[in-house]
Simulated assay, not measured.
Amino acid sequence: MAEIKKITLKSGKTRWRFVIDAGRDADGKRKQLTYTFDTQTEAKGEYARIQHERRTGQLILPSKLTVAELIDAYLASKADDLEETTLDGYRNRLLHARDYLGHIRLQALTEDDIERWVAWLLVGARRRGGPKGTGLRTSTVDGVLGRFRAALRYAVRKRYVARNVAEYIEVPRKARKADRRENRRPEPWNVVEVKEFIVGARDDRLFAPLLLSLMGLRPAEVAGLRWDEDVDFTAGTLAAGGNTRTMLRNSKVIEKDAKTEAGERTLPLPEPVRLALMNFRVLQEAERATMGADYFDSGYVFVDEIGQPLTTRHLRQAAYRLMAQLDLRRVRLYDARHSCLTFLAVNGVPDVVLAAWAGHTNAAFTKRKYVHPTAADMGAAVTHLNDLLGVADGRSEAAM
Rank of each mutant, 00 (worst) to 15 (best):
I7P: 02
T14L: 13
I20E: 14
G23E: 10
G28Q: 06
K29F: 07
T34H: 08
Y35F: 15
T36Y: 02
Q40N: 12
I50M: 03
P62I: 08
P62Q: 08
T66D: 04
Y74C: 02
L75F: 07
D81A: 11
G89M: 05
N92M: 11
D99R: 15
L101E: 00
R105V: 14
L109Y: 01
E115N: 10
V118K: 03
V118C: 06
A119I: 03
W120V: 04
L121P: 01
A125R: 01
R127M: 09
K132M: 09
L136N: 00
S139D: 10
V144P: 00
V144Y: 03
V156S: 04
K158E: 13
R159V: 04
A162S: 13
V165Q: 12
E170W: 08
R176W: 10
R181Q: 14
R185S: 14
E187K: 13
W189K: 06
N190I: 06
N190L: 07
E196F: 06
F197V: 08
F207D: 00
P209W: 00
P209D: 05
L212T: 02
R218Y: 01
A220T: 05
A223D: 04
R226W: 03
D228G: 01
D232G: 05
G236D: 12
A239G: 10
A239H: 15
T244H: 01
L248G: 03
K252P: 00
I254G: 04
E264V: 15
R265M: 07
T266R: 13
E271W: 11
P272T: 05
V273C: 13
F280H: 15
A286S: 12
T290F: 11
M291S: 13
D297S: 10
G299K: 03
I306P: 00
Q308I: 07
L310F: 03
T311D: 07
L326E: 11
C340V: 04
L344D: 00
V352E: 13
V353C: 08
A355W: 04
A356V: 06
G359W: 01
A364F: 08
A364I: 10
R368S: 14
Y370T: 00
V391A: 11
D393Y: 08
S396P: 03
A398Y: 09
A399E: 13
